[in-house]
């Protein structure tokens, strides 16, 4: 029987500052083997003596040899991690959970609604679509951030802006003096979109408060519920459906989620 709780010792092979609060860690498994994850899945990262915490994989499985985790410094473990450098070792378990079923998205338009740090997990899907561009229809990305200084993956945002095959829209709650883009909450960008509703798969990832408002907005737009997917944050402590911390009603987020098909959330009163 495989032991559920032993990590594999992996190496940090790159660290990049994404914003004042976020860093991107490139992780290489022993022998450079692939993580073999689906976009939307997560891993448990452990630092001995500090603990273990779940992080969504931010890179696409199409990028081989390493994977990336975009991590905000908000707690005990992330504080230590943010002081670590390339060459240091971390423990990895996973990948865990249910990610985006990309086959369901093929041939469809893909619309991404990402708020704040929600861009981290969904970037895995975005890059998957970009790397298999002909398999998908339109790629529409709505990204909302508190301020323009908090925008993540700014290099990639520029690439999406320049890419004629990406419809990228960004807004910030409050911009600094040199910000010339949209200001306002993310939902303000939805009414103006021209969407083929029946043929569009919509993915929402963001802070808990955002879901309700985006859902309302999509609803008034006429987006069918069965075309909506979202990724939920909970305390996935063990990652293997045992410890109970991530439970939403009868669902273990670490098993059934973190990515949920919206109609499946109808029975989960605690989800949103």
């Amino acid at each position: 029987m495989k032991d559920l709780y032993f990590p594999v010792m992996a190496e940090i092979t790159g660290v990049k500052q994404l914003s004042p609060m976020e860093k991107l860690f490139e992780i290489t498994l022993p022998g450079g083997v692939d993580l073999e994850h689906d976009p939307g899945q997560f891993v448990e990262l452990s630092l001995f003596g500090v603990g273990e915490a779940p992080f969504s994989v931010s890179s696409s499985p199409t990028r081989k040899g390493t994977f990336e985790l975009g991590i905000r410094n908000v707690g005990m473990l992330t504080d230590v991690l943010h002081r670590m450098e390339a060459g240091e070792k971390v423990g990895i378990r996973g990948p865990f959970g249910s990610g985006f079923n990309v086959d369901d998205f093929k041939g469809k338009d893909v619309m991404i609604v990402a708020g704040g740090i929600g861009l981290v997990p969904v970037r895995s899907l975005i890059n998957y679509v970009l790397d298999n561009r002909d398999d998908f229809g339109r790629l529409i990305i709505l990204y909302g951030s508190k301020t323009d200084k908090d925008l993540l993956f700014t290099d990639e945002l520029q690439q999406w802006t320049d890419d004629p095959k990406v419809e990228y829209h960004v807004t910030v709650d409050s911009g600094s003096d040199d910000w010339t883009g949209n200001t306002g909450v993310i939902t303000t960008m939805i009414p103006g979109l021209d969407l083929d509703l029946e043929n569009t798969k919509c993915v929402i990832v963001g802070p808990p408060i955002m879901y309700r408002f985006v859902l309302l907005s999509l609803n008034s737009k006429g987006m069918p519920e069965e075309n909506i997917y979202m990724s939920l944050e909970r305390r996935m402590k063990c990652g293997v459906g045992k410890c109970g911390h991530c439970q939403i009603n009868s669902s273990y987020v670490c098993q059934d989620g973190p990515v949920y098909h919206y109609p499946d959330l109808a029975d989960l009163q605690e989800a949103l």
Binding site: Y5, G49, E52
Partner: peptide, 20 residues
């Protein structure tokens, strides 16, 4: 059967254990 997992470090700061 729910559980939590925490790391403990010996006061010598050289060894420790992951405990549930």
């Amino acid at each position: 059967y729910c559980f939590n997992v925490e790391d403990g470090v010996d006061v010598t700061a050289t060894v420790g254990q992951r405990e549930r």
